[in-house]
Design a protein around this nucleic acid. Structure first.
Length: 593
RNA sequence: GGGGUGGUAGUUCAAUUGGUUAGAGCACUGCCCUGUCACGGCAGAAGUUGCGGGUUCGAAUCCCGUCCACCCCGCCA
């Protein structure tokens, strides 16, 4: 007899039903009382009629307030033609209540429970249980669940098994900052929460699991962003006896299933783009391919100009490159261009030069430094047509490319060039190492367990900077949604790799001995990847923030307004853990001088 | 660590740019109301203007510090 509120329909007319849920709104006419009852399935209108509901039930109805929890029993009635509410799916019927039970009452609400959210985020998170009652929030969580189901099912079909891995692990050098957990039993020693189960899943491959996956929480103690939470969920995958293409095929099938669960059809296979090409064309290793707007290098042409800024950059071995903004000369005001320049400055560029394509030639405040023939060759390089604007950044590649990438995204958004589609790609052939200015040594671009490209192996010691890695990222619409690599599976190569990273044999033994040992007992060639589940769900549900697809997210300073975590602990707890806090404690008595 | 935006009633916002009693919508309380669905009507309560200090005859408004939220840079193998 119990029915979900959203399930009521014409088919149930004259049936006696019972519903339970929350009072969304109450319209008390003194005589007639209407209550919109909400549960997670939807809303149905309850009617309290003094004649049909009885005196007691009717008077109890006056006590119903917003978010009163109740159970009602009554008869489904067809609404008369003029009282049908077309705005809700159950709008053709209503329930004439004959029995009413008030199960719980609610204090006045800090904000209204409706999809068009008016409250600020801090309030929403403090009262997350109210926020979650908003239908859109339930839909997002339900969708997340469906996506997980699809992922599990797709990987299951491909022969993967889900294996749980420890949350209390060893802290390892490099990578993000670890969340540490002190050991009570072993004074002065610490566990680390996993940044990802990287090594443990490789050990699983050595253990003959062959195909592992896990939907698993990971922890990184770094600063937050709209698309970064300190605790987040990965779809973690590892496979034995495979090459890159085998993994890509599995992932493409999995992603197609995941997006289908979110009602989005995607095209596979995804284009493969070498890292170097991505940087040259888009300035970034996570290009948004929903629009073209490719970067055009004009370093050689810039060298011929009399423009000092360009000349100096070229002489220092830098890059001069630009973007053609179709119709930009006509559409953009001087202020728009100034704003764009300020934007480029925020992203590291020292300035932004520009040309208008007008009356068949390029003009601007710097055109006088360029001969006519040179201007024409620059115009041709960009294919600039009447009314276009061309903007330039000149700097070291390390500065210029990111600035151009940021400009590219900004311009496409501003000018409405972004197609409504899901543009996936694999970025491949990453460099194995990158030079770290701070420590004055090479660091692994992906991680130290990534296999170098076999063709480059002989240069590993002689020219480490030139080695390609068997690493790859999966990129969607300018977002990195996954990354992984084919791993090193022999102890010799792993030790060579450690040495290049400045980890000597002794330290390698101390910190990664278990891995080297494992690799010594017949490790299969293997590789894997990890996808950011939260990001994927965010992109599928069209959200702007990870916080909208995580039930209980952290705020920007990594705290939880609901539980007020992190909190203080007692002196006794610290002592038990052999810890002393160096932080000034507000609750402690003032230190006297 | 750095840059930006914001913080005023439970909540979302306003306050003529330093001026005398800090307002409005929604929510809340009371009364009235038999076809509403953003119900309606009448009346009412509700404020440490984030916090601390300063300038001033006078501060929500200006200055300094600090806390919180959001966006970005750094950081995130």
């Amino acid at each position: 007899m119990w029915k979900p509120a959203g399930s009521l329909s014409k088919d149930m007319i004259d049936q006696r039903v019972s519903v339970r849920g929350w009072a969304a709104t109450q319209r008390d006419h003194g005589g007639l009382v209407f209550v919109d009852l909400r549960d997670r399935s939807g809303i149905v209108q309850l009617v309290f009629d003094p004649e049909r509901s009885g005196k007691e039930v009717h008077s109890a109805a006056h006590r119903i307030r917003s978010e009163t929890v109740l159970r009602a029993e009554g008869t489904v009635r067809k609404r008369s033609e003029e009282t049908i509410n077309p705005k809700i799916p159950t709008g053709e019927v209503e329930i004439v209540v004959e029995k009413l039970e008030i199960l719980a009452t609610s204090k006045p609400l800090p904000f209204e429970i409706e999809d068009e959210v008016s409250a600020g985020e801090e309030v929403r998170l403090r009262f997350r249980y109210l926020d979650l009652r908003r239908p859109v929030m339930f839909r997002r969580l339900a969708q997340r669940h469906q996506i997980c189901r699809a992922v599990r099912s797709a990987l299951d079909d491909a022969g993967f098994i889900e294996v749980e891995t420890p949350m209390l692990m060893r802290s390892t050098p490099e990578g993000a900052r670890d969340y540490l957990v002190p050991s009570r039993v072993q004074p002065g020693r610490f566990f680390a929460l996993p940044q990802s189960p990287q090594l443990i899943k490789q050990i699983l491959m050595v253990g003959g699991i062959e195909r592992y996956y896990q939907i698993v929480k990971c922890f990184r103690d770094e600063d937050l962003r709209a698309d970064r939470q300190p605790e987040f969920t990965q779809i973690d995958i590892e496979m034995s006896f495979i090459e890159e293409e085998d993994l890509f095929a599995v992932c493409e099938r999995m992603l197609r299933a995941a997006f289908a669960a979110g009602g989005i059809e995607i095209t596979v296979p995804f284009p493969r783009i070498p890292y170097a090409e991505a940087i040259e064309k888009y300035g970034t290793d996570k290009p948004d391919l929903r629009f073209a707007l490719e970067i055009v290098p004009i370093t050689r042409l810039a060298a011929e100009s009399g423009f000092k800024v360009f000349r100096e950059v070229v002489d220092a071995g830098g890059l001069v490159a630009g973007l053609r903004i179709p119709g930009g000369s006509q559409a953009m005001s001087r202020k728009d261009i100034d704003d764009l320049t300020a934007f480029a400055n925020r992203h590291g560029a020292k300035g932004m030069a520009y040309f208008h394509a007008k009356e068949g030639r390029l003009t601007s405040n710097i055109a006088k430094y360029f001969e006519d023939g040179l201007l024409e060759r620059i115009r041709e390089a960009f294919g600039a047509e009447e009314g276009d604007l061309v903007v330039f950044v000149a700097d070291r590649p390390k500065i210029a490319y990111p600035a151009l990438a940021a400009l590219r995204n900004r311009i496409a958004k501003d000018r409405g060039l972004v197609r409504d589609e899901q543009a996936f790609c694999w970025i491949v052939d990453f460099p194995l190492l990158e030079w770290d200015e701070e420590s004055g040594r090479f660091a692994a671009m992906h991680h130290p367990f990534t296999s170098p490209h076999p063709d480059d192996l002989e240069r590993l010691e002689s020219d480490p900077g030139s080695i390609r890695a068997r690493a790859y990222d999966c990129v969607l619409n300018g977002n990195e949604i996954g990354g992984g690599s084919i791993r090193i599976h022999t102890p010799d190569l792993q030790c060579r790799m450690f040495r290049i990273l400045g980890i000597d044999d002794e330290e390698a033994r101390e910190k990664f001995g278990f891995l080297l040992d494992a690799l010594s007992y017949g490790a299969p060639p293997h590789g894997g990847i990890a996808f950011g589940l939260d990001r994927i769900v965010m992109l599928i549900t069209g959200g702007n923030s990870l916080r909208d697809v995580i039930a209980f997210p952290k705020t920007q300073n990594a705290s939880c307004p609901l539980t007020r975590a992190p909190g203080r602990v007692s002196r006794e707890q610290l002592e038990e853990l052999h810890l002393i806090s160096t932080a000034l404690d507000d609750d402690a008595p003032e230190a006297t001088e």
